[in-house]
């Protein structure tokens, strides 16, 4: 038997090291999960190809189809990762005692949250690159130049923050099975009725103010505007910031770790 020195030598790694280790762990687990990959990558890419080819099926309004479709698919990818995947994964971490066990580890709760955010951003970078590459191959011609790139970055960051706060709010209060059902339901409802793929202008007039106030509506509509060369509307940012702050404030009070 190899000798093992068990004498105490306690100590924590520096926070950035622990955050990176955690982010890596979560990213690996997500990439291993077939359902999550389907949701994060396959569905958006299929929607992009299908939506671009199936011309008459859904009326996307004026403008080139691919130019209208692509920003919506980008928004959908953000929704799937930062809301649905995060909520489901976190709810099951709660159920299986992972959050509890990590609570006794040197990783502080702030580090856990940072690790989760870092993992989300890595996954989103992969998703958005793949979607953008396929869209460009299908003829997507975004306008707006550097300003649009910066605006997309800002919208995606704020959108991620709003969806992640909502996802954690759900995961920290509902049971794991209920979160699984509800997170998928919200995804489908927002996809159908949240101005994700179909532009806001195509909704009945009475619905438009409601849909514009949804985080999905604000993110997708904002992305469609800036990639079409329009300025970034402050209302879009305000809607996302309000959802972020509101959901985070409630989540902090209601989150149960076990």
């Amino acid at each position: 038997m190899t000798s093992l020195d068990l004498s105490p030598a306690p100590g924590a790694q520096p926070l950035p090291h622990m955050v990176a280790a955690h982010a890596l762990m979560e990213t690996r687990l997500l990439l291993r999960n077939g359902e999550q990959l389907l949701l994060a990558i396959a569905i958006p890419l299929l929607l992009l190809v299908g939506g671009a080819e199936a011309g008459g099926l859904i009326d996307l309004g004026p403008g080139r189809r691919i130019d209208v479709l692509t920003p919506g698919v980008l928004a959908l990818a953000v929704l799937s990762t930062s809301f649905t995947s995060l909520a489901i994964a976190t709810a099951f971490e709660r159920r299986y005692g992972v959050l509890k066990r990590l609570g006794a580890s040197p990783l502080p709760r702030s580090g856990l949250l940072l690790g989760k955010v870092a993992s989300l951003l890595v996954i989103e970078a992969v998703q958005l690159s793949l979607i953008a590459a396929l869209a460009l191959a299908l003829g997507w011609r975004p306008s707006g130049g550097v300003y649009a790139v910066a605006a997309v970055g800002l919208l995606v960051t704020l959108g991620t923050s709003a969806f992640a706060a909502l996802g954690l709010l759900m995961a920290g209060t509902l049971r794991a099975e209920a979160t699984l059902a509800a997170a998928n339901l919200v995804y489908v409802v927002l996809l159908a009725a949240g101005a994700v793929v179909v532009p806001l202008a195509k909704y009945p007039e009475w619905m438009q103010p409601v849909v514009a106030a949804l985080p999905s509506g604000a993110l997708a509509e904002g992305l469609r505007e800036v990639t079409a060369g329009a300025p970034l509307g402050w209302q879009r940012l305000a809607v996302l910031a309000c959802w972020s702050a509101g959901a985070a404030a409630v989540a902090v009070r209601t989150f149960r770790w076990e």
Partner: peptide, 9 residues
Amino acid sequence: LQSGGAWSA
């Protein structure tokens, strides 16, 4: 812990 504490996958 008495049980659990790891991701299922």
